[in-house]
Computed example of a mutant assay.
Amino acid sequence: MRSVSYLGFGGVLVLAMVAASSAVGASAEAFVDAPQPSVTAPVSGKTETAVFAGGCFWGVEGVFDHVKGVASATSGYAGGRAGAATYEEVSTGTTGHAEAVRVIFDPARVSYADLLRVYFSVVADPTTLNAQGPDHGSQYRTALFPQSAAQERVARAYLQQLTASHIFSRPIVTRIEHADHFYPAEGYHQNFMAKNPTYPYIVINDAPKVDALRRMMPRLYRS
């Protein structure tokens, strides 16, 4: 399980990961070429917001940062109450929050359906309950937080499509959830992958996801 500690030194915040050397980065259903969604939503404006939970938010944010048409990706918490939206509390697995990422995107360049395909292909393993790679706990669950009725319609249709396709060898456990608010995570979590490309957790668990996006979906990938 990923854990972080905070050490102040000369005004600089230092992150350290404590992980077993035997931790496995890729899960059983890693990097599945999910089908093109059969249901999409009409373009409704210049920008749209989507929220995804798919395990540690470092990698989720890191992948979506490399998708064409994404204006920003922000790590944070969704599903629980405001007072519990801190890393220390969410890490207990008792707050109802999931580590999540808010994606702001241009629907004329990349659709919500496209983002779902990226999510299910390379971001998260939708067949593991409350676990992703080496991380375990309800805060690491896979969940979609639709921000509109149109998004929910597309998400439900795509989950049905994926189930019918039998592309995954095990049942999909990703849930559609509703949350009133998204709470941005602490500053040291933002852009963590971009700022720390050689961090062991990133190298083992998250960099392969970005590489898979580049290889599998070159139309959507940006460096």
Rank of each mutant, 00 (worst) to 15 (best):
T128V: 14
P184I: 08
A34C: 02
I172D: 00
G10L: 13
G55P: 13
K68E: 12
A194C: 00
P134R: 11
G25D: 07
A108V: 13
Q161M: 05
Q132W: 10
F145A: 08
H97G: 13
R102F: 00
D180W: 08
A41P: 06
K46C: 08
Q161I: 00
V123I: 09
I176T: 05
Y119T: 10
Q160L: 09
T47M: 12
V101K: 07
S21L: 15
R141C: 06
F31H: 03
S27E: 14
R81M: 13
P171V: 08
A73Y: 11
Y140L: 01
T174M: 03
G96K: 02
G76M: 04
P208G: 03
A124L: 03
D114E: 02
F57S: 07
K209Y: 04
T74H: 01
G187R: 13
A84Q: 06
D33P: 10
V90A: 04
S3I: 14
M216T: 11
V32K: 15
H66C: 04
F9A: 11
D33M: 14
T86W: 08
A41M: 09
F31D: 04
R215Q: 07
S169C: 01
P146D: 12
N130T: 06
P197I: 05
Q132H: 13
L115H: 06
R215F: 01
P200D: 04
F57L: 07
V70R: 00
A212V: 04
R215H: 02
G80E: 03
F57D: 08
V123P: 04
A155F: 11
N130C: 13
A34K: 01
E186F: 08
P184K: 03
L162W: 10
D206G: 02
T74S: 10
S121F: 06
A34H: 01
A34R: 03
A212C: 01
